[in-house]
Design a protein around this nucleic acid. Structure first.
Lengths: 350, 350
DNA sequence: ATGAAAGCGCTAACAA
DNA sequence: TTGTTAGCGCTTTCAT
């Protein structure tokens, strides 16, 4: 009836608790004892109790992931991959879904309550302060897809600057003239970096500074921003969106409500390369974050920290590539990548 | 340096461990003692250790969610909602992402290893056996979106039969003639029920039995199925897909590769009403699962079970409604719902 | 190679 | 109302 304990097994196998423990932890145990214990365990359907174990080992084998909304497909993708990788290492994922709360204390408290072995903040719209709080509580912490501007906690992000600049160059090479930007949140380092780099490049190339509208990282927000942009007097022919989720909204709004032909009389470029971006209905040209690479580094950093090895604590930026599809007019120099999709880089210009 | 314990607080506050415990568990404590302890706790930055607590209370406050792929947007939505609701009740979600493994034992083992207070299996493509295993290990378990054909474990699903029948009637009323079905997995009760109910209705109305192709619940699988369907000799004018994820694939494939005008010369209907289905690019007509209602019941059942109250152990089927958009030719009788979208039901036929 | 004993941080009887 | 005591199930010295 009750869940069997190590003592039960010990008793049945005529061994001691310690030996039972050793069997389940790879300790040295004689062949005889081991098989007796294994058999007893089998018979009782025994499984070590992870919580009791955690109490002594001080390890929970739980990794937290904090994300905001899951409707931006980027995050489910990240969760999926993180979960797979961590599972292979014996860790499980505990989810902290937030809603962009501005009062962070209760949330921090929540997170710290669970004795996590590590946590990754995968939300570009969550203040770095919570991550810093975790860091200060000595739990291995890493920010994904955004970084603490003050460098107080490990961060890992795509090279927003390089990506946004490449997009600007791509659009310029594609002979666009009037640029616009749909930004995420004003307090998101990710959005700010992407938009600024894009604008700077455009301006330094001698074009009118892009009109910038905020899409609040949401579908509806981006749709609204698009309406504002396209109803204005300016003849915008290229929109850069701070992420794919918003780009998808912009694309559809422009197409359905303004009759624009995407990739012909209006180009739209996103950032992230979520799966949906490649769907036939969209064919979104976008900057692909090198997710696998980023995940690898996260895992390495976290596992190193958990196991007490010193990690590289500085924020890292990883370069991705521009995936060219149909949502933006193509300049020369688009090449087929080994994976079968098309890419472009300034260097590949003829 | 080290995390402070209840004893530390007790010492500093000149009280006993028990009193400290009481303070953090809503026990009766004198005002004086309480404030002394709270102050000491604050000063030491003390927080009860959940793992130690779990060991005595036998509650982990952890709820497992097992899902397969997250690229079907239905599941992120479910996770989001479950997480929100459970969070409000003080539970956290630990994620078990599977990949349709056919060897269930290691997975069951994994799940049972964590001492979860409850678990919800939210995957129509995962065998009921794992859920039954959990049930047998005495952990409150519920299947979401699928049920155990043998009724060994609590299940909660949309009324697949009612939904699929309604879709069939809808399409018949819309004067379609040649029907096809894209099914999920053959061993998924959900898919089987939906497809069978649809076919039965079509046949009993005197039409040719629908051609059925398997889409394996995946985007690519459904795209392939669509190609098969539309390249065939039959002049199919309506496709019912066992879920939205596949319907979205079918819709795009038919549109892009076969030049079909969706809602005009080819109607496509899905099942689930995921957010994306409502996007302008798709306007997918689909049967909406009453997710909130279902989630409510799951929570109630699980919490009741956890707290030792007897729950209703029989599988439940909840009725949803048919959301009418543009992907299928409309019969008469479509009405505007209070939420602003359009619905249809056989009863509303003129 | 094995066992005895201590203790992880907490809660829960019980006694006072 | 408070404190004392005894575990929860496990790992981990330390002897043997």
């Amino acid at each position: 009836m009750k869940r069997p304990t190590g003592s039960d097994v010990a008793r049945l196998a005529k061994a001691s608790k310690s030996t039972v423990s050793r069997v389940f932890n790879g300790g040295v145990v004689s062949f005889e004892a081991r098989s007796r214990i294994l058999e007893a365990a089998e018979q009782l359907n025994y499984r070590p109790h992870p919580i009791a174990r955690s109490l002594t080992t001080n390890k929970s084998n739980l990794i937290g992931i904090a994300v905001t909304y899951l409707d931006n497909q980027f995050y489910p993708e990240v969760i999926q991959k993180l979960s797979d990788r961590f599972a292979a290492l014996g860790y499980r994922i505990v989810l902290f879904l937030t809603h962009g709360e501005k009062t962070l204390d209760p949330m921090l408290n929540e997170i710290l309550s669970y004795s996590l072995d590590g946590i990754v903040f995968a939300s570009s719209s969550l203040s770095a302060d919570v991550a810093v709080g975790c860091r200060n509580a000595n739990i291995p912490t890493v920010m994904f897809n955004s970084v603490d501007p003050l460098g107080r906690v490990k961060g890992l992000a795509a090279s927003n600057k390089a990506g946004a600049e490449m997009i600007a160059e791509f659009l310029i090479a594609g002979e666009h003239r009037f640029f616009a930007v749909i930004s995420g949140m004003d307090d998101s380092s990710t959005s700010v970096e992407r938009c600024k780099a894009f604008s700077d490049k455009i301006v330094s190339a001698g074009f009118t500074p892009p009109q910038i509208e905020c899409g609040y990282y949401s579908f509806d927000g981006a749709a609204k921003a698009t309406r504002k942009l396209l109803s204005g007097s300016k003849e915008i022919d290229a929109i850069f969106c701070a992420n794919d989720h918003m780009a998808l909204a912009a694309l559809q709004t422009a197409r359905q409500e303004f009759g624009r032909e995407i990739g012909k009389d209006l180009s739209i470029v996103g950032f992230d390369n979520v799966q949906i971006a490649g769907w036939p209905a969209f064919g979104l040209t976008t900057y692909a974050q090198p997710i696998d690479n980023m995940i690898n580094r996260i895992i390495t950093y976290l596992v190193d920290s958990i196991e007490g090895r010193p990690g590289n604590d500085t924020p890292e930026f990883v370069e991705g590539e521009l995936i060219v599809r149909e949502s933006a007019r193509r300049p020369d120099g688009v090449k087929r990548s080994t994976r079968g999709d098309h890419v472009w880089s300034p260097a590949s210009r003829p």
